[in-house]
């Protein structure tokens, strides 16, 4: 696959067996562009490398062996990596992509001790899950995964929000009351659940998450209101059944 260059080409679903609604196509295009552009802590080149490594994790024999083991810690070895990223970052990418239900705080602390900053970690997670999400969408509708975008040159913003504080998760988060200054727009007038605030150590990743979620699922403020109808071709109960089954398969307690 050749890289998508946003100056000349765009992500598209022309070859897909079903028509994809335009707001969803546009959201995927914006997500692809975000992967390509410099982030807050990683360059565009590094972000695209994280995306490439996310796909590469599916053919890693260490990940496959670990997935089969009773505990992922029972299998030693090295990941089959594309190169170009630090080994602890590769471990984060492979584990989050292939075995997310068995991540542990101890593992996270080892990753931090190996030199991965908490904000770099959050941004890495965001790129991995964005790529994973859109790849799963393509797989579900029966079309090939999109070529990765070509990186956009530039420097990361390196903005660490002052309002991010420890509050029980592995990484600091911005509480609603602390979303001020450059983060004043982050949650708008709505109460975000923990999962909506989980990436707030890198505020732009929350903005990207919300953008994608709004098109793929529903706006954040509708999620907890079970009587709200987001106007999809399947009803709310059908959406929640799928959501619950996927989460159970991923062994996600949250």
């Amino acid at each position: 696959m050749t890289a998508l260059d946003y100056e000349t080409k765009q992500l598209a679903y022309q070859g897909a067996p079903v028509v994809v609604r335009e707001d969803l196509v546009e959201a995927h295009r914006r997500a692809w562009r975000r992967i390509a552009e410099p982030g807050t802590w990683w360059t565009g080149e590094q972000r695209v490398a994280i995306a490439a490594e996310t796909r590469n994790a599916l053919s890693c024999s260490l990940c496959r062996e670990r997935k089969q083991a009773l505990s992922p810690n029972a299998v030693e070895g090295e990941h089959q990596s594309l190169g170009g990223l630090p080994a602890p970052v590769v471990d984060v990418i492979h584990r989050v992509r292939t075995d997310p239900g068995r991540l542990s705080k101890r593992w996270f602390e080892q990753i931090r001790a190996a030199g991965v900053g908490d904000a770099e970690y959050v941004e890495t997670i965001s790129v991995v899950v964005t790529l994973t999400s859109i790849d799963f969408f393509c797989r579900a509708i029966g079309t090939a995964a999109h070529p990765l975008p070509a990186p956009v040159a530039g420097e990361p913003a390196r903005h660490r929000p002052q309002g991010a504080r420890p509050e029980g998760a592995w990484v600091p988060m911005i509480a609603h009351a602390n979303a001020t200054g450059p983060e004043a727009d982050l949650y708008g007038v709505h109460r975000y659940p923990n999962v909506g605030r989980a990436l707030s150590l890198v505020p732009d990743e929350v903005r990207g998450l919300v953008d994608l979620m709004t098109a793929q699922y529903m706006p954040v403020h509708q999620v907890a209101r079970a009587s709200d109808d987001p106007g999809r071709a399947i009803d709310r109960a059908q959406m929640e059944l799928i959501a619950g089954r996927v989460s159970a398969l991923n062994e996600c307690f949250y």
Binding site: I125, T132, C252
Partner: peptide, 10 residues
């Protein structure tokens, strides 16, 4: 696609 993402974030 959404929950493949949200589960991993959580």
């Amino acid at each position: 696609a959404t929950f493949s993402k949200m589960d991993r974030i959580a």
